[in-house]
Design a protein around this nucleic acid. Structure first.
Length: 642
RNA sequence: GCCGAUGUAGCUCAGCUGGUAGAGCAGCUGAUUUGUAAUCAGCUGGUCGGGGGUUCGAGUCCCUCCAUCGGCUCCA
């Protein structure tokens, strides 16, 4: 007999060799049906795998991340099984579960698999699932495993195997398919009731762009058909919030083939939103001791040679602009920092001048790879809410903390509560990618880690994600379909001050080198607004809305009063427009609702007579009539709530 | 940049195996002056992404370029 300890601390005796699923059955049949994965003494475990000694056990179902992971991982194997039946000799890379589903990377040889083939593959998967093949685990000696894949001719698996140690290699089989895999897997394929292959895409083998491109097939699966349907509906809903769609519909921004890809054009309404965001941040920054500057959109090539950007990105960027003068070259500015370094260096600095905080809504141009462009989120010309703080080593942590506060304030104002903070450090394996001395990097990395900890910020750390001149802390936020984007960023930089030979005179009357903090709470106006659109579904908070109200006259007799209302509200900084069309009131309301107009002011003969407006709020309906005084108060109240 | 897909009127989309482009909405014109999510009628509008080819004939087939979409790589 063995003792099994449950998460609640309860201990129960079972026969040696009992499996998690049998243990589950001893609790209830329902649980046994739903167990997808288990953990035994902290080790991932198949539900059907016998336990031979005392153990602590956890059982996972669809409700647990671990359960979903096993389910999707097993679905990937099912996909592979189907592919092997349909495409003889197909070779397999890796097939892991991901956040919402799974994929398998395959090499179909000289055949191509396109989305038109997915239906057929899905069919085969369903058919195989119905046979309820059990997933069986087998430990295999490395040599045997290598022989198996060499004979099969699957060089990808051979490569993976070569990196594994003998004694820890396991095969999982279901039906006629066997895969190198460390598990765990669900009991059998029959549990996979609903399958949707969503996409096929290219993916470099092992993420290396110099290696072969595999075909990656994405899919998602569920234990119940209903859950798949709900998921698909959710995806449809998310698509409606896509900023590219809403941006066009609401007339916020546009792109033009003639202007060029990745170069957003801001229309009046989008510009209104953007200006309000900028003014909001500008005011906050003034309160926080920033000084605003403006710098040109181009700079001599030498400027970026000095900064190091030319070396790092020169070839992959917009190429230099030439002038009639022989040998003269200018670059579109990819960064504002070199200009700001010049501003620092313009006059001699004393320690009394620090910290010096220089801000700019600076537009920069970067030649992003064509396949990377994405609406407003990834563009070739964009405006950073940039600032550079020059300070002493002693001031660094405090300044960093102040920036953290400002960034959090900005995100809170926008209602973004769900962000993650990522600390990006150097890749310890390959320091050649970075500029600057080890000591400076260590100091900078320590400053960020300490400050984040002191601020009580929950962070995850990524090695190798640092900028080439310094480590950074980024705020990441998700878009409508779950992709994560970097918004705000804070970066510590010892390198540029050195390259630009920046100095200040210390209290000791000797020259010292300042440290630079690069920071942008929004990140870029473009990307920030793209996320804002997706989070609000285009329904901006009242203070940001391009138009806060629309006056809807019921007939022409109401027009003069509408004009007067508009004038009087403008005096109170409430902005709006009049729908002067000779349409029915129903039509005007419908159009205003579709345009996501926050407030509709309906004016007919009654309102004119009483010098009032009938107020309707989007999504809420009729709120009754008000005179302008009470409307203003009502409006102020709405603003206060935001 | 790489893999796959898509590109028909301002928008959403139809157009079967090649036979000379169609709907709804939008727009324009006219009528209607309307009370909380679509008033009615008429009309305009497309070198079918660009270029090249096959063919008696191409929106439909082939090549190529461009743009967009989903990934990969990249992201100062």
């Amino acid at each position: 007999m063995i003792s099994i300890k449950f998460p609640d601390g309860r201990v129960q005796q079972y026969e040696a060799g009992t499996s998690p699923i049998e243990i589950a059955r001893s609790i209830s049949d329902g649980l046994a049906r739903n167990v997808l994965s288990a953990e035994v003494n902290g080790q991932e475990w198949d539900p059907g795998r016998p336990i031979h000694s005392d153990a602590e056990i956890k059982l996972f179902t669809w409700k647990d991340e671990e359960g979903k992971k096993a389910f999707w991982h097993s679905s990937a194997h099912l996909l592979a099984e189907a592919l092997e039946e349909l495409y003889t000799g197909i070779k397999f890379g890796i097939g892991p579960p991901i956040e919402n589903g799974f994929y398998y990377d395959v090499d179909p040889g000289d055949r191509t698999i396109s989305i038109n083939d997915l239906e057929k593959i899905e069919q085969k998967m369903r058919e195989l699932a119905k046979s309820k093949s059990e997933f069986t685990r087998r430990e295999v000696p490395k040599k045997e495993a290598l022989d198996y894949y060499r004979e099969k001719g699957d060089e990808y698996k051979v490569e993976l195997l070569q990196e594994l140690e003998d004694g820890q290699i396991t095969f999982y089989s279901q039906g006629n398919f066997t895969d190198l895999c460390k598990g765990p897997h669900i009991p059998d394929t029959g549990i996979i009731k609903a399958i949707k292959l969503t996409n096929v895409a290219g993916a470099y083998w092992r993420g290396d762009e110099n290696r072969k491109m595999m075909t990656r097939i994405y899919g998602v699966s569920f234990p119940k058909k209903k859950e798949l349907d709900e998921y698909l509906v959710m995806l449809e809903e998310a698509k409606k919030r896509d900023h590219r769609k809403l941006g066009a519909e609401l007339g916020l921004f546009m792109f033009s083939d003639r202007v060029g890809p990745g170069l957003p054009i801001w229309l009046p309404k989008g510009t209104a939103v953007r200006s309000r965001l900028q003014n909001f941040l500008r005011d906050e920054q003034l309160k926080h001791g920033y000084q605003e500057v403006m710098t040109p959109h181009i700079g001599k090539k030498e400027l970026y040679v000095t900064s190091g950007h030319y070396d790092k990105y020169g070839k992959d960027s917009f190429q230099p602009i030439h002038t009639p003068k022989e040998g003269e070259e200018f670059l579109l500015k990819p960064m504002n920092c070199p200009h700001h370094c010049e501003i620092y260096g313009n006059t001699p600095k004393s320690y009394r001048d620090l910290p010096l905080r220089i801000s700019e809504f600076g537009t920069v141009y970067r030649y992003e790879q064509s396949g990377e462009l994405h609406g407003l989120s990834r563009v070739r010309g964009f405006t950073q809410d940039d600032a550079h703080i020059f300070c002493t080593q002693d001031q660094l942590k405090e300044e960093f903390l102040k920036v953290l506060d400002l960034t959090k304030l900005v995100l809170a104002k926008m209602g973004f509560e769900q962000f993650t903070a990522q600390i990006s450090l150097r890749d310890p394996e390959d320091k050649s990618k970075y500029l600057g001395s080890d000591e400076n990097w260590d100091a900078a990395e320590k400053a960020i880690i300490d400050a984040a900890e002191e601020a009580g910020l929950e962070t995850k750390t990524e090695l190798g994600e640092a900028a080439f001149y310094g480590p950074k802390l980024d705020f990441m936020i998700r878009d409508a379909i779950g992709r994560s984007w970097q918004l705000g960023t804070i970066q510590v930089d010892y390198n540029l001050p050195e390259r630009f030979q920046l100095e200040y005179t210390g209290a000791d009357n000797k020259p010292h080198r300042p440290i630079m903090i690069h920071r942008a709470p929004f990140g870029s106006m473009e990307r920030f607004i793209s996320i804002l659109i997706e989070h609000t579904g285009g329904q901006f908070p009242l203070w940001l809305a391009p138009e806060q109200y629309i006056l809807l006259p019921i007939n022409d007799r109401a027009l003069p009063w509408c004009e007067e209302v508009k004038r009087k509200l403008a005096e109170r900084d409430i902005r709006g427009v009049i729908d002067e069309r000779t349409e029915s009131i129903g039509r005007k309301i419908r159009d205003a609702e579709l345009n996501k107009m926050p407030l509709m002011l309906i004016v007919g003969d009654n309102e004119v007579a009483e010098q009032k407006v009938s107020v309707r709020r989007k999504g809420e309906g009729d709120l009754g009539s008000m005179d302008l005084q009470s409307f203003s108060s009502f409006f102020e109240g709405l603003l206060m709530q935001e």
